[in-house]
Each structure stands twice: as C-alpha cells, then as structure tokens.
Design a protein around this nucleic acid. Structure first.
Lengths: 341, 341
DNA sequence: CGAAGAATTCAAAGCGGTTTGGATCAAGCG
DNA sequence: CGCTTGATCCAAACCGCTTTGAATTCTTCG
C-alpha cells in the first residue's frame, strides 16, 4: 500500500492525498476526513525512506558510542540513551545508534553526516582533549554535547550537571563533619566530568586553607573492584582516610564491601559519599538511602538533551543552547562524624 | 556532492559510476580505479535514503526496548545492544533503537515494519505469554528472539542461554556441598528466562528426592535492594537458608551486603551462587572471583544475535535458526560447605 | 575486411514520497 | 454579465540512487 494506490482508491491525486495527510490547508475538511479515514482503514503509512529523500530531512538523531577501554561508561551512556530514546519516540524521531571502537568514532560521525543518516548527533563523554566537535563542525551537522569541552563552553551546545560544585559541596559536608583525610576515588581524569569533580574536591579544601593529599586521590574506570581494592589499599596506609568521596555508585559499592570486609562499619568508622547517576537498577532511595550522595538523573539528562537537540534541528537554526543540571545532595546512612583520632 | 555531480566530474554516466562503486563486473578495471579515486578525493558517499529507496532494503535492524516497570532489565538489554551494535557496524547495518512504554511496543514494531524502517527486528526479554511474535509474523518482517517463547521453540528463530540447566548445575553444586535449605532469588517469573531457571532449581532438588521450600523462593525485579532485603528477611527465618542462588550479580551484591551487615561471612557462613551476565561494569573475574557463578556473556549473545539476524535478512530466506549458549560454572569465593547444623 | 561476440558505457525508467506551478470551479462583486 | 478571488485539486518535476535494456566500441576470427 503506497501513496499512489491510496490515491487511486480515493480517486484523488497523490498531491491531494499527501497534503491531506500532512495537514496542509489547501484541502477541504471533508476530503481530508475521507482521506484520513481510508488511509487508516487500508493501513497506509508513508515509506520513511521515500519521505526522507523527498524532504531532505532524515528525522533521526545519531548517537555514536565508543566501545573502548573505558567500558565503565556503558551503564551511564545507556541510561542516558534510554532517556533520550523516549523523547525521540515522542517527537517522531528515530534514534540510530552506532557502536564502534574508539578509533572509529570520527569515521562513524562522518558516515552519518555525509550519507545524511541523521539530522543531528550527540557527543557522549567528552575528554579534555576532545576533537569530535571539530569534525562535526566541519561536517556542518548540528550536535549537542553531554558534558562540556573545556574552553568551548560558550560557542557549543551542551547539557551537563554541576560536577565541580556538587563535589565541592560533598567535600564541604565531609569537612564539616570533621574529616580531614578524605580519599577521592574518581573516574579517569582525562574525562572532563572527572577533571571538574577533582577541582571541586580541591576547591573545598582550599577554601579552608587545607590541601588534599595526592596520595589519597585515585582515578580509574569506575568498576566495583576498583572501589574495593582502592579502599583496602588506602585503609592500609599508616594514616588512612576517614572518608571517601566516590564518583560512581558502582565503585562505592566496592568501597562499602571493602569496609565491611575489614569489620568496619560504613557511616560510623568510615564515611562515604558517592555520586549517584540514579541508574534504574541501582536505586539508592528511601527515607534514608544507603549512600549519602550527590544525585543527578542521567536519564533525565538524556530526555532533556534530546529535546534540546530536536529544538536545534527544527527550522530555526538557533544559537548554542546550554543546560545546567544541579545535582542534589542527599544524606544517607553512609556518612557520620569523623572518629576521634 | 551527489552521484550526478560526480558523474559529470568524471565525464561518465551515473550508471557507470554507480556500477564502478558497487563492484559490478561490467566496468573496466581502469575506469573503476579512476572512479574510486575521484570519489574518494571529492568525498563522495551515496545518500543512504536514496539508496534505500532504490534498493528497497533499509540496511537497518530495529530494536524496540520497552521501558517498563521492569526497569531492571535495562543493564542487560543495554549490554546486549552494545554487542549487537558492534556487529551491525561491522556489516554496514544501522541499528535503530526505539524506547517506548510497554503498552506501545506493538505499535512501535508496526511502525517499523509498515514504514520500512528496518529489514528485521529483535525481540528482547520474552514473557511466558508473549505475543510480539504474532504481530511480527503478521507484518511479515524477519525477527529473532533473545530468549525463547514457550511452545514456539521450533518454528521461531532465537538465541538463548541454557537457563534451566545452568541453574540445575548450580543447585547441584550447592546440594553437593551439603546445603539443604537453599534460597532462590529469581527475576520475575513471568519472564521466560526466570521460569526456566526456577524449573532448573526444582529439577535439581527432585533428582535427589528433595523438594525446594517455596518459602525460600522469591521473585522480583533484580535490584540491589531486593537482594539485601530478601537476604535479611530469609536469614531471619527460624530455619534460615544456608545458601542463596541468585539470578543477577546486582542482586547478589545486595545479598552479600546483607550477609556482612549481619556479621556473617559469605562463602563460610552462607554460600552464594549468582548468574553473571558478564556486564562490563561488574567484572567478577580473576583467579578466584568474588562470586561463584554461572556465567554467560550477554554482550556476546548480542554479537551472535546480530549475526544470525543479518544472515536471515540476506537474500536467502532461511529456516528458523537457533543458537544455544552454554553458561559455564565458575567457582569463586562465595561458596563453601554447609555449616554443621 | 566484415561480422559476430565480448566488453563497456549510457539513457531512461523506476523507488515512493513532497512540492511547485498551474488548472478548475464556484462564489463574490461592480 | 464579465472578471476577480479564494478554495480545491491536479500533473509533473524532483529528491539521489539503482537497474533495465539498448547503444557503442573493441576484439577476435573466418
């Protein structure tokens, strides 16, 4: 069932039928009703390839996710994509997802742009020395960054959470509780979000004329074992930390495991604050959640990001947009006053 | 830069250029070289919408993932998709991902089929009373199931792991270790995989003329808190279990937390076996992994599934294909002999 | 040398929509 | 009544590619 057949069945021209279905004014209400009714009855829906070819708009947004050494980003990427996907579905956009090795992401974007597979693309997990935006600018395809690229905050579109200030606030909380040796288990600091978190951590110290001990700061892919083994190692130090600030719930779970493996109690003997991306499979909720955390829903970020990007593609080529999501600080069971020395 | 312009630049017809680029034999090696070289130089790549329209093949595979109450399936879905995506990229297929509320998955599949958005689709997480395959058969679009639909094992294509026998083996291990009160923390048993796991669990008991105690079997969305609270509740019983068989690492982490919260030691006081989907962010590896587990990489399943589906779409409409993945049983630190009563 | 056959190349017809530039027709008006 | 106007509807061009069927050129061989 294609447009031609439908038009024949209605004894109308393709033009009229097309217009009727697309809501153009130059068709009488009466025939519009008739067209819509028979279209529905015959189960007609326009072939999307044909429509795309004719309109020049692909009605799709591309996401390229690098499958790299940093496997850890996956659950976050994926939750973001789930959020974005819902928005796309609501607006009639398709999401095309490309999963390629790190080295091929440039090529993947190029492919999308030059073959016109999508009207816009999303950039995930920007690094400090990221260059994807340059490729995309050269290709003249609209894009939005989940995160920020240092130095390009003003002229590119992005959505991000307040990584720096969230971690500064969290550190403040720990300092207020009397902790003076605080460990930071960060993500890889060549990622922009991790670099910001680290600066926030250091800022909080600096404001009190303290300096964070570099021996207590670590960075790695945010796995559970990373949390456990780091916590063990740090707690073995002559002067162990009394608190941990952790970049991911998953790593925090590892920390919590290490703490109990040593017969200590989290929240009493050792405090832990983690960032919580609100991953659906790791709820840290309830009256008083397990982990004190800075929370910002990455799924919600996905939803908003998709809206912003669709907006950007709509026929009014706008200025760059920015959206700044504030993580909330939530007190759970895992923090308490620093133990007396 | 489109085909016409490229043809003009070469003083050739579109036909010849098209054929040269697509490897047809009726074009001289010499001009083929020339065409390829200038195409590369001018950065030409065929518009995919146009090509799709002309060929009638969309070179895309659709995945519809329901965002439902069962949020928990997400990390597994997503890991599967990451695997599948890599395969698609390798074969030049696009993946289009649709994220919709449970109630709209039928409509989403219909949309894909009737607008010709994809050449085939994947079914995720089949239920016992699943009907998606009927919609897809009616729409005459090839599909493959990740999992199985009961009663339709022979005439539909699927890829699945040995849920039943893996859990039977795991249960056997625990029974061999002397455990007689074994708890099962399963996923929701209206999902086919969970129903099979339960049957495997019961089969192992039956083979020794034992019956599994229904009071020790639970099912729910596989979150971390589900594991922790269930473990606490069960260990509070007058006759608590000495071992847990768990359907997901994430839930098992909750169990492990509950065990240590009670001052018990996993592997000594309480044994735990979990199924391990080999999620990239939850490595349970090493010489002797934390959890004894049945392991089957869902990412690998995704890779294979994509290959099977692409095969199915290639111009030789085949019989249904099945692939049966065997989970391996891996001994970790979390299991040991049952404590003396 | 001329014709048959192979090797190349091309013009044009789709693929299934959207959109431009009229046509057609009834109503409105001086 | 003739002409303008607005409301509808339509034929045909176009989007950028593939593919059919035929034309052209080059070899080969009696």
């Amino acid at each position: 069932m294609n447009l031609k057949q439908l038009a024949e069945a209605l004894s109308l021209s393709q033009t009229t039928v097309s217009r009727a279905l697309n809501g153009y004014p130059e068709v009488s209400e009466e025939t519009r009703k008739r067209v819509e009714e028979t279209a529905r009855r015959l189960g007609y829906a326009p072939n999307s390839q044909a429509r795309r070819l004719a309109t020049g708009r692909s009605m799709a947004i591309g996401h390229v996710i690098p499958v790299s050494l940093h496997e850890m980003m996956n659950p976050v990427f994926m939750e973001f994509i789930a959020g974005a996907g819902q928005t796309y579905a609501r607006f009639g956009y398709d999401m095309i997802l490309t999963v390629v090795p790190d080295a091929q992401v440039g090529a993947a974007y190029r492919e999308i742009a030059v073959r016109k597979k999508a009207d816009a693309v999303m950039i995930h997990g920007p690094r400090l020395d990221d260059h994807r935006h340059e490729i995309l600018q050269e290709l003249k395809i609209p894009f939005l960054i989940h995160g920020r690229i240092p130095g390009r905050e003003n002229d590119l579109s992005w959505i991000d959470m307040n990584n720096g200030s969230a971690f500064e606030t969290a550190t403040d909380l720990l300092l207020d509780l009397g902790h003076r040796r605080i460990a930071l288990l960060n993500g890889l600091e060549d990622m922009d979000f991790a670099a910001r978190r680290r600066r926030g951590f250091e800022r909080a110290h600096a404001h009190r004329n303290l300096t964070a001990d570099p021996a207590l700061m670590r960075q790695a892919d945010m796995t559970e074992p990373y949390g456990a083994s780091s916590a063990h190692a740090l707690l073995d130090l002559p002067e162990p930390p009394t608190a941990f600030l952790v970049s991911s719930m998953i790593t925090a779970i590892g920390v919590s495991r290490a703490i109990s493996e040593r017969g200590l109690k989290m929240g009493r003997d050792v405090s832990v604050i983690t960032h919580d991306d609100a991953l659906s499979f790791l709820p840290n909720t309830g009256d008083k959640p397990i982990f004190t955390c800075t929370r910002s829903s990455v799924r919600y970020a996905g939803e908003r990001a998709a809206e912003l990007l669709i907006d950007q593609v709509m026929p009014h080529p706008d200025k760059p947009v920015h959206e700044y999501l504030k993580a909330e600080l939530i007190i759970g069971h895992s923090t308490g006053p620093a133990p007396k020395a």
